[in-house]
Amino acid sequence: MRRLFGYEERSAALFLAPVMAVLMGVAVFPILYSLYLSFFRIKLTRPNRTPFVWFDNYTDLFTNDLFWVSVARTVTFSVVSVSAIAVIALLVALLLNQDFRGRRILSTILLVPWAIPYVANALMWKWIYDSGYGALNGILYQMDFIDKYMIWLGDQEKTIFLIANAFVWKEVPLATILLLVSLKSIPSDLYQAARVDGASVWQRFVHVTLPAMKPGFMLVMIYETMMAIRHFDLFFILTEGGPGDASHVLSWHIYVETFRNLSFGSGAAMSYVLALVTFALSYTFIRTLGRKV
């Protein structure tokens, strides 16, 4: 008697058709096409010969030193930025969770870094880090921390941290907003109960606030990690992977391989590796959050 496709199924199918078509076209098809491409040696400089090479692009990749350098750089960048984002966002969220005059204005101001384009952000930090006239040099010089202007982004040791700083500055607002939500969702009787039990401010923070924020915290860490490992814009504008290979991260490596060496097959293979890493990361993300949808 049961019909698999009743009125509900038919209307749902109709409503979902456009979105499914779009996502098939712009997400699923490309990602599969990319897999297909990664089995060929495609050089745009040699358009007529695109041999099928099985997994050569992948094995080449894993034997390529620069690839492993880029992985190491990406890991450094992600670990540094994500931990900084987590700490700063936690502090800011705790601050904005207090009730004080000017809190509204402060949270509006906080949206500024989130809103500005990444390119403008990059341009701004490039100017701040500028070796000749930048604000960083200016302020450190005026405060006598340095006795001559430094070429900040030219310093192999410091570059990746300076870029991470620019990334953190832009990502903190989003992380803060997400953490604030989990802070706000802590029922106030929990605090009152802890208070009645004689817990100090610090104990209340450790035993009530932190555990309650754990899911929100996980979300922020995973989300920001996903953003960090795929980040491209700052590297393109601030350093172009340099100096040397000091900021040669994976996304930059993919870009160079694909659009400078015009080697699309290995570019596709690499982006596939990146996509798989992201998927693995977001698996937990989907498992924990998909259920609630």
Binding site: A27, V28, S34, F232, Y255
Partner: peptide, 12 residues
């Protein structure tokens, strides 16, 4: 589809 990184889509 939400978590596919944009850079993975660039080549295709």
């Amino acid at each position: 589809t939400r978590v596919i990184p944009d850079i993975a889509l660039v080549v295709p």
